[in-house]
């Protein structure tokens, strides 16, 4: 989780990623941030995030992002 929060703060330091549950719904993360984020997550966690996973439910909170990464890791296994 710490790794993820660090990545998020590196992209846009303006938000409280540990508690936010509406990063997408409240338009806190822009589409540019999402593109950047996906590139970094793929590198850091060695997963492929397809466009189908770019839905608000997967990016509204750090927890949701981590859950998506775990799911993709399992599917790869």
């Amino acid at each position: 989780m710490e790794e993820l929060i660090e990545i998020l703060e590196g992209i846009d330091p303006d938000h409280d990623y540990e508690n936010s549950k509406d990063l997408i719904d409240a338009h806190k993360l822009s589409s540019l941030s999402i593109i950047s984020l996906v590139a970094e997550l793929e590198e850091e966690f060695d997963v492929t995030i397809p466009a189908t996973q770019i839905v608000p439910e997967n990016f509204n909170s750090a927890d949701a992002m981590l859950a998506m990464i775990r799911r993709l890791e399992e599917a790869d296994a």
Partner: peptide, 12 residues
Amino acid sequence: FRDYVFYPLTMS
């Protein structure tokens, strides 16, 4: 356009 053009393209 976001879901069916923008993200599929940027995620290609």
